[in-house]
Amino acid sequence: MTFVLMLGSAPMATETAHWPRAFDALVAINNAWRVRADWDFSIYPWDFPPDRVAVPGQHQALVTEADFVPAQNRYGGFVYAGATMAYTAAYWALDALKPRVLAVFGCDMHYPAGQTHFYGVGTPDPLRRDITLRSLEAKSVRLIVLAALQGCAVVNLSVGPSRLLCPRAALSDLAVVRPLAFDAGRVAAAQAREAELGYFAPSGRYWEDLSAYDVAEIDRLDALWLACLP
C-alpha cells in the first residue's frame, strides 16, 4: 500500500471531510470515523464506549486490541512505543498495511484551553501520568525511525503546535516525501538498550505490574531515541 492517512480527533479533523481521496486507506482513530464516511479502518481501545463504535459497511473493518496488540508487540511493545492510540494506530498501520507514506492529521497531542476534540471537550489521553508517555516526542522519533527502517515516511499534515517530531507535509506532497534520515549508530544503541531492559508485556497490559519498570531507565531510553534524528 502506498499512502495511508491516519486521522485523529483534534478540532481540525473536520477539515478532512472535503479532502479528495488522495490516499489508499484511511485509518480513523476512536471517534474520527464520524468525519468521513469513506474510512477503511476504525481503530479503538478496549475501553472505548460501545455506543461510539462504528458500524462497518462493505470493505470497512474494525481494529481492536485483538489486532493491534500483536502488531504493537512486533515493534517492541507498548512500554517502548507509547501507550496512546495515535502511536498504537501508527504501529498497527505499519504492520498491517505496510505503507510507503503514513500521513497523520489531527494527532498532534496538543491540547489548548477550550475545545480539545472535533466533537467537543474530551479527555487528553496522551497527557495522562503514564510510564510509557513521559516523552511523547521521544516516542514519535522511535516511530519515525522504525517506519524508515521498513521504507516508510511518516509525515504530519497538520499545522500548528504538535508533540510529533515528524516532518510537515501537504496532501499534494505525498508522492515525493521520503523517509527521514537518522543516525544508525544511535538507533542501534537505543534498540540494544531496549533489548537489555526487556520491558515487554505480551498482553499489552503493562500497567498490571508497574514494579517491573524503572522510570529512570525509561527516561534514559527516551533520551537515546531523541538523539537519533539530525
Rank of each mutant, 00 (worst) to 15 (best):
G185E: 13
Q60A: 09
C152L: 04
I29R: 02
D24F: 11
P167H: 12
Y206V: 07
R129D: 14
R178T: 06
V104P: 00
K98T: 11
V154L: 09
G106A: 07
D40H: 15
L94P: 00
G198V: 07
Q115S: 14
V159L: 09
A113V: 00
A103H: 02
D173F: 12
A223D: 09
W39H: 05
E217T: 01
L133M: 14
E15D: 15
H59E: 12
L5T: 11
P112Y: 09
V63K: 00
A71W: 00
L197K: 02
D125E: 13
A184P: 05
V79D: 03
A37I: 01
S162P: 12
T132S: 12
G122D: 04
W39E: 12
Q72A: 11
A71Q: 00
R36T: 04
L97N: 01
A66T: 05
R100K: 10
A66S: 14
P11F: 10
D40A: 10
R128C: 01
L26C: 05
A103L: 01
P202L: 05
L7T: 07
A66C: 06
P126Q: 15
A175C: 06
P112G: 09
F78T: 03
C152Y: 01
T84V: 15
L180D: 10
P124V: 07
P202V: 05
L157W: 03
G122W: 04
V177L: 08
A223L: 14
L94D: 01
F78L: 13
Q115M: 11
A25S: 14
A192P: 09
W46V: 08
S211Y: 01
S162Q: 10
A223V: 10
M12E: 09
G106F: 04
V121I: 14
N30K: 12
G151C: 13
L127G: 01
M6F: 00
T84R: 00
V63I: 15
A83N: 15
N156V: 12
M12Y: 00
A189I: 10
V69H: 03
L149R: 06
A147Q: 07
F48G: 02
L136H: 03
V104H: 02
V79T: 07
G185M: 05
V35M: 06
V55H: 04
G77Q: 13
A22G: 06
P161C: 07
P179F: 12
W39F: 12
V154D: 10
Q191H: 02
Y80Q: 05
D214V: 08
A175S: 14
D222F: 13
I29E: 05
L26E: 07
C152Q: 00
L164F: 13
D24Y: 11
R205L: 11
T132G: 06
P45N: 06
A138K: 00
P126G: 14
A89I: 01
A66M: 08
W225V: 08
G198P: 13
K139N: 13
F68V: 02
Y199R: 06
T116F: 12
T84S: 03
R193C: 10
D47S: 09
E65H: 08
A138I: 01
V177S: 11
M12F: 00
V101Y: 04
K139F: 02
Q58I: 11
R220S: 15
A37E: 15
V145T: 04
A212W: 04
A169L: 11
A61G: 01
A89F: 02
D40C: 08
